[in-house]
Design a protein around this nucleic acid. Structure first.
Lengths: 108, 108
DNA sequence: GCGAAGGTCAACCGAATGGTTGAATAAGTG
DNA sequence: CACTTATTCAACCATTCGGTTGACCTTCGC
């Protein structure tokens, strides 16, 4: 249970965390530097980073006393697939979709 | 702020709610019928539907004593745009798509 | 009008979020 | 060693989530 895609969508549901991911698009960053633009405490940012890590959206590696945060965008793939597939399925009429199911999965 | 995109991602972070959205791809449904495949109480489903409504992903219209749930997939647009901004990813992977089908629709 | 069906509401529960502050740990720097 | 920097941990707090049960209201069928 407790699927990864749940964690990914949950992680993306907070503006602070989305902003962090966007910052990390540019380059890896230390925790302190991630926290700098935000008005909340470092501990709060640390918790956000934990949630992003749990979702697999970032990884953290400690070098010396600095913990570097690195974007792991491939963790978004499952969520992208879900959301885009949904859009594509929605565009189909349902009979065609059922045909697809029958063809691809051998169900009826 | 409490932005809409926050609500959309939060709504999508629960497997029960994603399953409900997938069910509604086929047709509008009454609350009781939405609840039927799930093992939880009707009240629990009602709460999930409230969360989906808050996100704008469904609308509910009462006709007689029956409340009809209708998919509003355009509410996903903003979330799709955001998530696609990490577009260096392969957008649609066939294996993952099959997994999606199995998980979200393959429930007999 | 009566009873059943369709849904929500209210109260409760345990767990998770999102934030705080202050102490603690770890690792460079003088 | 002493100090400072980097980061987490622990405790606390208010709010939300995901679920339950039982009461309630509305509407349909008889």
């Amino acid at each position: 249970m407790s699927e990864q895609i749940d964690h990914v969508f949950a992680a993306l549901s907070d503006g602070t965390r989305r902003a962090i991911l966007t910052m990390l698009l540019e380059d890896d960053m230390a925790v302190t530097d991630v926290a700098e633009p935000f008005e909340m405490s470092l501990a709060a940012i640390s918790k956000h980073l934990t949630i992003l890590t749990r979702a697999g959206l970032i990884s953290q590696e400690k070098r010396g006393r600095v913990k570097w945060c690195k974007l792991e965008p491939q963790a978004m793939r499952e969520a992208i697939v879900w959301i885009e597939s949904f859009g594509q399925l929605e565009a189909l009429n349902y009979d065609a979709f059922e045909d697809f199911l029958a063809r691809e999965l051998g169900q009826s």
